[in-house]
Simulated assay, not measured.
Amino acid sequence: MGRKPRNTATMKQVAERAGVSQATVSLVLNNVGGSRVNEATRQRVMDTVEELGYRTNAFAKSLRSGESGMIGFISDEVASSPFAGELLKGAQQLAWETGNVILSVDTFNEPDLEAAAIDMMLSYRVKGVVYASMYHRVLDLPAGLEAVPTVVVNAQERSRRVASVFPDEEAGGYAATRQLIEAGHTRIAMINIQPEDSDLPAGIGRLAGYRRALSEAGIVDHPELVRYGGGVVEDGLALTLDLFDLDEPPTAIFCGNDRTAWGAYRALESRGLRVPEDCSIVGFDNHAMLAPILDPGLSTIELPYEQMARAGIELLLSGSAQEPTSNPIECVPILRGSVADAKVHA
């Protein structure tokens, strides 16, 4: 036999058991400031609420107040992706800390599903919406979100109507290259994660950071040391082999993501070479299922998923989401064992 559902207590039952009016119960549960409910009565009501298992009707409360205590989280594939799941985690944690909950929907880039998700968010009277992307790109805000405070996370909103929170790609590329420069390397290659003519911010920013670090250090930016891949292991392998066919191979490689770095490891191994003794490697992403597991562990730059989501929620709750601000978030270096001093290569 199935479990018999528990009866739901009503406010009237709480009032009768506590010996007070329903108005008094409402004042206590809604923590109305300035009410004349003394501490003993307030405690008696709360004890009765606990005894009867009373739960407030959140939907009815939202109709009265115009707020549901919910924050919408609409994404393409974030919630279903272990790689970017930290975005949703960060949003959930800060929402909970501030007395809110997250209402999350993955749309899988389907316009009809996205439109339905927006309608649902509006019907629930969410305080605002986090519109999140699986990868850093420039996007157009969908119709319907102009009716509710919205912040774009892990992307940049093209028309600059709302606030955008995204990784500081250039600073991350700079930090990655500085790791290699500070280890004494001067012949530093980069394998990017997108074609040379791509307009995606990630590859553009990381390459700009690489070039800025070289320039500040007085190191010549040799065009033959820059390669353009697609961010996959196979490209990292092929392009590293290509670099090591040069008359003067690099002593260090900045790989535009961790999958590319894995390919670089495999390429060096196929030539009988070792990381970092024969070539130092730095990646980008801090992919939890890859970077710490490579041997040696991969020094990399961490994408700030959780921090971006928290920043987005803070903008919503502070009322600043509708200000068209750009909010780059620092990408922090994670140091492991894939970088050695350049003198090892001498």
Results as ranks from 00 to 15, higher is better:
55 R>V: 13
110 E>Q: 13
35 S>N: 14
114 E>Y: 01
234 E>D: 14
96 W>E: 08
308 M>K: 05
147 A>I: 06
328 P>F: 06
187 R>T: 04
156 Q>N: 08
156 Q>H: 06
250 P>R: 05
131 Y>F: 10
113 L>G: 05
36 R>P: 00
121 M>V: 11
2 G>M: 12
290 L>H: 12
269 E>A: 15
119 D>V: 02
321 A>Y: 00
287 H>A: 14
146 E>W: 04
47 D>K: 10
333 P>R: 09
110 E>I: 12
75 S>I: 07
126 V>C: 11
202 A>G: 10
18 A>K: 04
50 E>D: 14
169 E>K: 09
94 L>C: 01
26 S>N: 11
56 T>H: 10
177 T>L: 00
344 V>T: 14
169 E>I: 06
274 R>G: 12
299 S>N: 10
160 R>H: 12
223 P>M: 08
103 L>H: 11
274 R>T: 14
116 A>H: 11
117 A>T: 02
66 G>L: 11
328 P>M: 07
108 F>S: 15
296 P>Y: 02
249 P>M: 14
129 V>R: 03
308 M>Q: 10
70 M>D: 03
108 F>I: 11
73 F>W: 12
186 T>R: 15
222 H>T: 13
333 P>I: 11
195 P>K: 12
167 P>F: 07
4 K>R: 12
296 P>Q: 08
199 D>K: 10
206 R>L: 03
308 M>W: 04
136 H>R: 01
254 F>H: 02
103 L>N: 08
215 S>Q: 14
194 Q>S: 15
205 G>R: 00
107 T>H: 01
332 V>F: 02
144 G>F: 09
106 D>C: 08
124 Y>F: 06
158 R>S: 13
1 M>C: 08
200 L>W: 08
140 D>P: 03
256 G>D: 05
185 H>A: 03
264 A>C: 10
172 G>R: 02
231 G>K: 00
49 V>E: 05
71 I>Y: 03
48 T>S: 07
207 L>K: 01
203 G>E: 01
315 L>A: 12
115 A>R: 04
257 N>W: 03
188 I>P: 05
260 T>P: 04
310 R>T: 07
198 S>N: 09
266 R>Q: 15
68 S>P: 07
5 P>Y: 04
61 K>F: 05
6 R>S: 12
110 E>D: 15
227 R>H: 04
310 R>H: 05
284 F>Q: 04
82 P>N: 09
285 D>F: 08
206 R>M: 01
121 M>R: 05
144 G>V: 01
259 R>T: 03
187 R>H: 11
